[in-house]
Design a protein around this nucleic acid. Structure first.
Length: 883
RNA sequence: GGACGUGUAGCUCAGCUGGUUAGAGCGCUCGCCUCACACGCGAGAGGUCAGGGGUUCGAGUCCCUUCACGUCCA
């Protein structure tokens, strides 16, 4: 603690304590004092078990700040603060996920540009807009080189990260800001490339030419984990194929794919079509001959029960194509248009002319043309029937995905290998999920995978795939023998750097090389967040690649906090990478936070206009209040955005300040505090507190911080409303010095413990109150133990406070019902209460009389329930109004 | 269609391995300027624990089933 704070201690309990300014004041002190800094030397010198390491989610810096961030990051911070106080050396990094498509989209909109890999770098480039390009049409965006584009991404993400940092600091996140990373920085790129190269060397990464999902808007391949099935309006067209014995009708939502039909497929058990299996039919309009074949994936009860299989209309077509070894007849280009050249299976046929009209058309216009043609030839049976079909979309895209064949990189993930699949499910089972049912999400997803992880993306702002390909004598790439860089040379960009043994002049030349133009899926980098943060790849003074010795002290990490929506992506991918690289799980716990819903139970989103900005919320309610709301939400449970809870939190925070001030206002207590606690009510309070400490600790230990908060909060309100009221007179000295000392000592002991119990939740007010009478930060003191509150000997009944409290409540009720002030004197009262509690009341009679202003006779009688009788009250004399 | 979760006072939620009369806070009503706090304090009203079966001496809690809602996957 700095000198000025120490010297001002105790003397500066404010006249009117307030929440105002606490965030700025303590945020600054914590930064200066490095309160939350990970002790690297201690970690290296000590055992792994002394460290608690957290694989903090790197937020998407270009994304918007929302209450979901506040919610889930607070959950983790409460755990981190508890662990720190419990004596762990907490490794709590913070990163920014700034590579990937969200940033690209934001950069495009912000600067009014679009990336064009064919353009050369312009070192003097200035963007046409800065934040004012909102209404710009996509077509008007200025094409710029990949490198210029990346420079803009860098520029903007750094700005965006400042907003996040400011929010997180204000919220009281106890990150170690010195351990930070960006998923696009040199270290992250090198780590991602190194891990990829090792996957490649071990055969865990491979490339293949295969049909895959393709987003025509973003011009990139998309992985299974990024899919979203959405309802999409379409229409069933009943179309006749021509068989030897007459027409066979199929129903399709994509008649424009008739030129790429390769088979008609029905279920093997479908008697309607059994006679046709093995025969051929010809397609309408184009007259292409295709077989009728059987496959169990054909749905008998859907449409006509027989489907046309094309290259490729959907993922089922791909399965049929592969399993039935059907020919490839692709007509859709990566732009989502019908290809220009007439394919050989149509050329010269009856549909050649029609295809010429289709050439270059979008899927949509092609469909209209084909339907018109079908109508003309009579091959369209009836009118199209509107339907809502499920179509696959890229989660960020607006047009249904097409399936195109392309060469892509994959990392094995058990989607095509039952053995690996089982092992990865097993890895998930050795992670403790909180709540445990989230385990099922993981297992379901892994078991349902149907292909390996596609990791290459045809985008700009990402980690380049670190390989080159030699060009043969004809200038064609030799895909099978990629040239890889040394680990020491990472990170590299194969598009702007030449591989070892070549020089730049050989790029694109026969006998030379070409660089892989693609970047890695953003998850391929963020799935290495533990390795990135913990220094799995490190470069020593001599330039050699090594591993930071601290890595073994923090990895596998203790916890991965995240949302349940990205179990299939981030969580699973991280498990895959750690399994391949280290043969272990990446962490032993996964703490899964829920979502924030608006009060109408809808997910809060921009489009619904129900988003509030966290900065405003923090300013209005205070960080402690907002944290209280967040901490009231249990792991795995979606929570309502609830201003009411924040107000309750604010009330609690203010109460902490006021009660602390009051408890400390009776003067210093010298000597051994515990030894001076002699009064039975005081001992009962501490006995109750002892139970609270045990429950609060058990709550945190079982990842149920909400339980800890609840039990502490309940105790604290009883402490304020009953205990403080009962003992204040005695603490002032009305019953003599020894009795006063007992009360004062108890107040200090209890306050000391309660502030520490609340510190993980309300870091600002607890630190403020702590500073009034302690040196150092409450956040690095020790978590209270039940031994500390052992002043109460065995045999002390914590129920005494409840008994005397109930008696006091009964007295209050009498006054309340008489509509009198609590200051009204009780001249006479008979209290009835449970017989076994009356001895407690008698033992606390002096305090009860003082708190209840009972000046006359007080009789206690056994009764089933608490109640007062024979009451005589003397109203308080109101001062006469001044004339 | 499959998996998982949720359904308790007007609202937000606690109720652990089944055990007195089902709890809290907010809101509401009524009172109180009580020497820490009026951003406060005290008191009160308010519930067939989604419906139906079953196990048990005893079920909000366990089992079966139905319904509603949510999320994920087809």
């Amino acid at each position: 603690m700095s000198a000025d704070l120490t010297s001002s201690r105790a003397a500066t309990i404010p006249e009117r304590p307030s929440l105002d300014g606490l965030e700025d004041k303590w945020g600054q002190v914590w930064a200066e004092q490095q309160t939350y800094t990970f002790d690297r030397d201690a970690a290296l010198a000590g055992p792994r078990s002394a460290v608690f390491s957290i694989d903090t989610p790197p937020p998407t810096a270009s994304g918007s700040l929302h209450m979901g961030h506040v919610f889930s990051y607070t959950h983790t911070d409460c755990m981190a603060r508890y662990k720190r106080m419990a004596g762990f050396n907490v490794f709590y990094p913070i990163g920014w996920d700034d590579n990937g498509l969200p940033t690209e989209k934001r950069v495009q909109n912000y600067y009014g540009v679009r990336g064009d890999a064919s353009l050369p770098h312009d070192p003097t480039f200035e963007p046409p807009h800065r934040g004012d390009a909102k209404s710009l049409r996509a077509g008007d965006a200025m094409p710029i080189s990949r490198q210029n584009f990346i420079e803009l991404c860098d520029e903007l993400t750094v700005e965006d990260e400042k907003a996040f940092e400011s929010l997180f600091r204000r919220l009281g996140q106890s990150f170690d800001w010195d351990i930070s990373y960006r998923t696009i920085d040199d270290h992250s790129r090198a780590t991602a490339q190194q891990a990829f190269l090792r996957n490649l060397a071990r055969g865990e990464a491979y490339q293949a030419e295969a049909p895959g999902l393709w987003d025509v808007t973003f011009q990139t391949a998309v992985a299974q984990a990024e899919l979203e099935a959405r309802d999409y309006p379409g229409a069933y067209h009943r179309v006749a194929f021509h068989g030897a014995d007459g027409p066979i009708h199929i129903e399709t939502t994509r008649p424009e794919l008739i030129p790429s039909v390769v088979a008609l497929i029905a279920h093997p058990d479908d008697e309607r079509y059994a006679g046709l299996f093995g025969s051929t039919v010809t397609s309408p309009l184009f007259g292409v001959e295709v077989p009728v074949v059987a496959h169990p994936m054909a749905e008998m009860d859907k449409g006509a029960g027989i489907a046309m299989c094309c290259t490729f209309g959907d993922l089922t077509d791909v399965i049929w194509w592969r399993e039935l070894q059907l020919p490839t007849r692709s007509v859709i280009t990566r732009q989502g248009r019908i290809q220009a050249e007439t394919p050989e299976w149509i050329a010269g046929g009856p549909g050649a002319e029609l295809f010429g009209e289709l050439a270059g058309k979008t899927v949509h216009s092609a469909r209209e043309l084909v339907v018109a043609a079908l109508r003309e030839t009579g091959d369209l049976d009836g009118e199209p029937k509107a339907t809502q079909r499920k179509a696959n979309f890229y989660e960020r895209g607006e047009k249904p995905l097409e399936i195109v064949t392309s060469r892509q990189w994959y990392i094995r993930n058990g989607g095509r290998d039952a053995d690996l699949n089982g092992k990865l499910i097993g890895q998930g089972q050795s992670i403790d999920f909180h709540p445990s049912f989230m385990q099922a999400r993981y297992a379901n997803w892994v078991a349902g995978l149907n292909g390996d992880w596609l990791v290459s993306r045809q985008r700009f702002f990402g980690v380049p795939i670190p390989v080159w390909y030699p060009l043969d004598a004809d200038g064609e790439p030799v895909w099978d023998s990629p040239i890889v860089p040394t680990e020491e040379s990472l990170p590299i960009d194969p598009v702007s750097q030449a591989p070892q043994g070549y020089d730049e002049s050989q790029r694109g030349q026969a006998g030379g090389f070409t660089g892989d133009p693609d970047v890695l899926d953003t998850w391929a980098t963020s799935s290495l967040s533990p390795q990135i943060a913990a220094g799995w790849r490190s470069v020593d003074e001599s330039g050699s690649v090594t591993t930071d010795p601290v890595f073994d002290k923090v990895f596998p990490m203790d916890v991965r906090p995240q949302g349940h929506d990205i179990i299939r992506t981030w969580l699973f991918a991280t498990v895959v990478r750690a399994y391949f690289e280290h043969g272990t799980v990446p962490w032993t716990n996964a703490a899964i936070s829920g979502w924030i819903l608006d009060p109408d139970r809808k997910k809060m989103s921009k489009s619904k206009g129900n988003v509030v900005t966290p900065e405003d919320v923090l300013r209005e309610h205070s960080a402690d209040a907002v944290r209280y709301w967040a901490a009231s939400g249990r792991l795995g449970t979606d929570a309502a955005y609830d201003v009411g809870q924040m107000k309750v939190g604010r009330r609690l925070a203010i109460k902490v300040l006021n009660a602390s001030k009051f408890a400390l206002s009776f003067g210093e207590v010298d000597g051994d505090l515990a030894a001076q606690v002699t009064n039975p009510l005081d001992r009962a309070l501490l006995a109750g507190l002892r139970e609270v400490v045990e429950k609060a600790t058990a709550g945190f230990e079982s990842w149920d911080y909400t339980r800890s908060l609840e039990v502490t909060e309940t105790f604290f309100w009883t402490f304020c409303d009953d205990y403080l009221e009962l003992v204040k007179d005695r603490a002032y000295g009305s019953q003599g010095d020894a009795e006063a000392a007992s009360a004062r000592a108890t107040l200090r002991i209890a306050l000391d413990v309660v502030l520490r119990l609340l510190a993980p939740f309300l870091p600002y007010v607890t630190e403020e109150a702590w500073s009034w009478w302690h040196d150092g930060s409450v956040h690095v003191t020790s978590w209270p133990t039940s031994d500390e509150v052992a002043a109460a000997d065995d045999g002390v009944d914590p129920g005494m406070l409840g008994a005397v409290g109930s008696a006091l409540a009964t007295v209050r009720k009498s006054k309340s019902e008489a509509k009198l002030s609590m200051r009204a004197e009780v001249a006479r009262i008979t209290l009835g209460g449970p017989e076994h509690l009356l001895a407690h009341v008698r033992a606390g009679e002096d305090d009860l009389r003082a708190a209840g202003k009972i000046t006359g006779s007080l009789d206690l009688v056994p009764a089933d329930a608490w109640g007062a009788s024979d009451v005589e009250l003397i109203p308080v004399e109101k001062p006469k109004p001044q004339q």
